[in-house]
């Protein structure tokens, strides 16, 4: 199925993507479809493009002091440049068992893989260093960001399977220590955690200067809860079973889910963390388009 939410755009149905086994080809098909050119690095660094001045603070390299301005103002200012140099791009992919859920064709994990591949491809095309960490109850695979790690990343994605319980918050806290160099960090998960705990775990990434983007991947069944029959619902991760009467539960569930999403969204916004809700029934490129468009606007504001 193709949708055209954005005029002129052509999006690829996730079910079609799921038939493409080669992740690189997939990423290329998706990314090349809507990106023409490069995006600017959102970070300041050693670049020839001047960005702005800022006050000198002890410790700053005195070579960056703008002496001319000092001559005019008698104050020390340091020149800042657009960092258009290569950046680190890291994907934190949740491969817990809940990510294996699929109510219609594409599981959340597959969808996340497509997304990760596309993002990595995009970054790789920008000469960024790409890396990935997959985790469930512990870190499953860790590919440090590197300009040469794109293929390894794709391989890691290919190998990722949802088979164990997840410990998102604990793993996030653990992995935050490894991102000391400012990176673009994309967290792809279904975020079944307490929003407060989740944000507590995400904040360190921001504090360390990382640009964190949270991709909240959900199956439409998780959002809409379309069940009718009274059944026993089994938790994919714990195996726990609970009798459920959708007739009674549905409304309450949807409300709680929306509250959960809104809570995460608002808390991310408060912490200047990008939050993107992805519905696995929606085309992947549409999600990327929306996200990158949003980033573009953000860059301009900055």
């Amino acid at each position: 199925m193709q949708t055209h939410l954005v005029p002129g755009a052509r999006f690829v149905d996730p079910k079609v993507l799921s038939r493409v086994k080669d992740l690189e080809l997939l990423a290329r098909a998706v990314v090349d479809g809507f990106i023409n050119g490069l995006h600017r690095a959102p970070y300041f660094g050693a670049s020839i493009d001047f960005a702005e001045h800022r006050g000198y603070v002890p410790g700053d390299d005195i070579r960056r002091v703008d002496w001319r301005l000092y001559a005019r103002t008698d104050r020390y200012f340091v020149k800042q440049y657009e960092a258009d140099t290569n950046a680190n791009f890291a994907v934190l992919l949740d491969v817990s068992k809940s990510m294996g859920f699929a109510s219609q064709g594409v599981s959340k994990l597959e969808y996340a893989k497509f997304l990760a591949a596309c993002l990595a491809y995009l970054s790789q095309r920008q000469r960024d260093r790409v890396g990935i960490v997959t985790f469930d109850e512990e870190v499953v695979a860790h590919v440090p960001p590197s300009a040469k790690h794109f293929n390894i990343l794709l391989h890691t994605l290919d190998q990722a399977v949802a088979q164990r319980q997840g410990r998102l918050v604990a793993n996030l806290r653990l992995m935050a220590e490894h991102f000391k160099r400012r990176s673009i960090v994309a967290l792809i998960s279904d975020l079944y955690e307490n929003p407060e705990d989740l944000l507590d775990a995400l904040k360190p990434y921001s504090f360390l200067g990382n640009d964190l983007v949270v991709f909240h991947v959900l199956d439409p069944a998780e959002i809409e809860f379309p069940y009718r029959d009274a059944s026993r619902f089994q938790d994919l991760e714990t195996g726990e079973e609970v009798p459920v009467i959708p007739e009674v539960f549905a409304e309450q569930y949807r409300k709680m889910m929306q509250e959960h999403i809104e809570s995460i969204r608002s808390k991310c916004a408060e912490s200047r963390i990008d939050y993107v809700l992805l519905n696995t029934s929606k085309p992947l490129d549409e999600a990327l388009f929306a996200y990158l468009g949003n980033r573009e606007r953000l860059m301009r504001v900055r």
């Binding site: 079944y192 059944s231 619902f233 459920v244």
Partner: peptide, 15 residues
């Protein structure tokens, strides 16, 4: 009242 078949669900956090 529940059906005998079990429905797998990602998380029963809300349920």
């Amino acid at each position: 009242r529940e059906r005998k078949d079990v429905i797998e669900f990602p998380s029963l956090m809300f349920i």
